[in-house]
């Protein structure tokens, strides 16, 4: 029972990681990070219900994660808006002004 949940979480995590590393649109990159964090929540809740020692702590942990992920997404979008105002692009391949 638990293995199917864990597999789903792992697949979501990897999809999120792939998207965060390869997508060109900055908004999608931020969304993919949310996907990774939500994969972890799924993992925690599966363990909380079907784990070796089922307990409520996993669900509480995932509540904390949801809150923190919301804060992180808000800051991410804010930074992206500031970037867009100055550069008028949300394309991560054009973010290459550093290094020089």
């Amino acid at each position: 029972m638990i293995s199917s949940y864990l597999t789903l979480a792992a697949v979501l995590f990897v999809i999120g990681l792939y998207g965060a590393l390869s997508k060109k649109n900055a908004v999608i990159v931020l969304l993919c990070i949310e996907l990774m964090l939500n994969a972890v929540n799924l993992n925690l809740i599966a363990f909380a219900k079907y784990g070796i020692n089922p307990s409520l702590k996993g669900q509480i942990f995932s509540l904390f994660n949801i809150t923190i992920a919301a804060a992180e997404a808000a800051v991410g979008i804010a930074i992206l808006i500031a970037l867009y105002r100055n550069k008028a692009t949300a394309n991560v391949t054009e973010m290459n002004s550093l290094k020089k």
């Binding site: 990070i33 994969a39 993992n43 925690l44 784990g51 020692n53 996993g58 992180e72 991410g76």
Partner: peptide, 28 residues
């Protein structure tokens, strides 16, 4: 800042994924 938040967010997700396995192995 954008680079930092993307890399930092991915790193947080990694730490959290590792922590979720710790929780799963112990229930605490």
């Amino acid at each position: 800042a954008f680079k930092y938040i993307v890399v930092g967010g991915i790193a947080s997700a990694f730490i959290l994924y590792g922590m979720s396995f710790l929780y799963g192995l112990s229930g605490s």
